[in-house]
Computed example of a mutant assay.
Amino acid sequence: MGAMQRGVKRALDFVAALVGLIVLSPAYLVIYIMLKRQGNGPVIFSQERIGYGGKPFTIYKFRTLSGRETEPRLVARCDESNSTRTERYLREHHLDELPQLWNVLRGDMSFVGPRPERKFFIDKITAVAPEYELIYKMRPGLTSEATLYNGYTDTMEKMLTRLRMDVCYLERRSLWLDFRIIIRTVASMLRGKKF
């Protein structure tokens, strides 16, 4: 992907995120009210991730877990013990990630790109796979081929598989490939696939 395509991609990300934030504002309001009424803590969850150029940024999500994380986990699991039915629904249908449109608008993220990770786990990955730093050449994304086919990473083996897929995406990325990934992601979500 050359400089011109990267510029077009960023412009498309900005416009689509802005439109998405406006069009989905009623959904944001409904989700906000539902979570606020539960009284289980802040509605918005924020966490530091590492993004483009290896720089940290704050990612935003609707909170879907009650209580605090006692130790870093690859994937925070929603179950009967730590989440309400509303929170589990938001997580299962990826609605908890809607606030990340703000991250896309700001330029922290893109619609398509590798999932952003925490430094704690990046250090563990780079200890066995130094090529992880190639990921820093791309803005992290809301979706990716690795998310579609490898799901959420809950083991080191899956993290290394995701890394290989993300590096492969880096080598072949184009606007057309991004478009296909977005279409496949939307289709998967409409079918109710759980990543």
Rank of each mutant, 00 (worst) to 15 (best):
N150H: 14
N150L: 14
R88N: 11
E87H: 02
Y136N: 05
A129M: 10
N150P: 00
S144A: 12
V128M: 01
Y132G: 09
R106F: 09
P116H: 01
H93T: 15
E145R: 04
D154V: 05
G141C: 05
P99R: 00
A146S: 10
H93P: 06
L148E: 12
E117T: 05
D154K: 03
Y149M: 10
L148K: 05
Y132A: 08
A129K: 14
L95V: 03
Y132N: 02
G107C: 07
T143Y: 01
D96K: 01
F120N: 07
L148N: 06
E131S: 10
R91F: 15
P116R: 01
A146T: 01
Y132V: 09
V112E: 12
E131T: 12
M138I: 06
F121W: 10
L134W: 12
F111K: 02
L134E: 15
M109S: 02
W102H: 13
L101M: 11
R118I: 09
P116S: 05
T153E: 08
H94N: 15
F111Y: 15
A127I: 00
S144Q: 06
E97G: 06
E92G: 07
E133A: 12
E133K: 14
S144K: 02
A146G: 11
I135N: 07
V104D: 07
R139Q: 11
W102D: 00
R118P: 12
F121T: 06
P116I: 02
L101F: 14
P114E: 10
E131Y: 06
L105D: 03
D123R: 03
D108M: 04
E145I: 14
K124W: 11
Y89I: 08
T153K: 08
R91E: 07
A146R: 07
G141E: 13
